[in-house]
Design a protein around this nucleic acid. Structure first.
Lengths: 106, 106
DNA sequence: TTATTATATGAAATTTTTTTCATATTTACT
DNA sequence: AGTAAATATGAAAAAAATTTCATATAATAA
């Protein structure tokens, strides 16, 4: 089950998920992503490396830019997860540090 | 995109993923899960509450036990993710704190 | 009504991840 | 060669999640 842990380490992150969603629509270079998502440059760069290492995305060079893109498996996965998130949105609560007021006991 | 963050907070966790996989096969009470997964009692309890809050799982009472189960949406999602994890296993690397030795530069 | 089993809770301690900072690299242009 | 633009890197700081601890509650049985 170690692989699942690594998987989540890479995939399960708000910013990285936003990146994947953007790239699902259109391949983009880092600079474009940065503008669209309004993430600080080095932060974005770290996230891209993370996604890249785990093969969620690919790069190709184009002059001094690097164009990032998702593959089909990633597209499917991201869409599936997005579907679930949308459907369960109303139930989702911050975990671990559950907001005390909301504690809906069983 | 806030919902995605909450979603990952609950779903994206090694132990909780193990729990979901077990429950996908068979509804179980906390005690049984504890034995099968070898997780410390209060730890498991926290994780169950988390999954419960976000409606990944359901409970019903049976005497002094509580029987946990997954729903169909969760089953599908967990299976989809498991499939991806299996396929990409060989690429997965710990993120954020990337092991220095492994640094496969682009 | 007390004891026991099963499970839950909240807070503190620990660990991990995210974010920022300062700087490096890479490519193209002059 | 020197400069600027685009992106990457590593380490430190900050934030968040996990794990443990000590204790509470709930249901049943003696």
């Amino acid at each position: 089950m170690e692989a699942a842990d690594l998987f989540f380490g890479a995939f399960a992150n708000k910013n990285r998920f936003r990146i994947l969603n953007k790239l699902n629509k259109k391949s983009l270079c880092a600079g474009e992503l940065q503008k669209k998502l309004n993430i600080e440059q080095t932060h974005l760069s770290h996230d891209l490396r993370c996604l890249l290492n785990c093969k969620f995305i690919n790069v190709r060079k184009d002059g001094k830019k690097r164009i990032y893109s998702t593959n089909n498996d990633t597209k499917e996965l991201v869409d599936e997860v997005s579907k679930h998130v949308k459907k369960y949105e109303k139930y989702l609560e911050r975990c671990g540090v559950l907001e005390k007021e909301k504690n809906g006991r069983v």
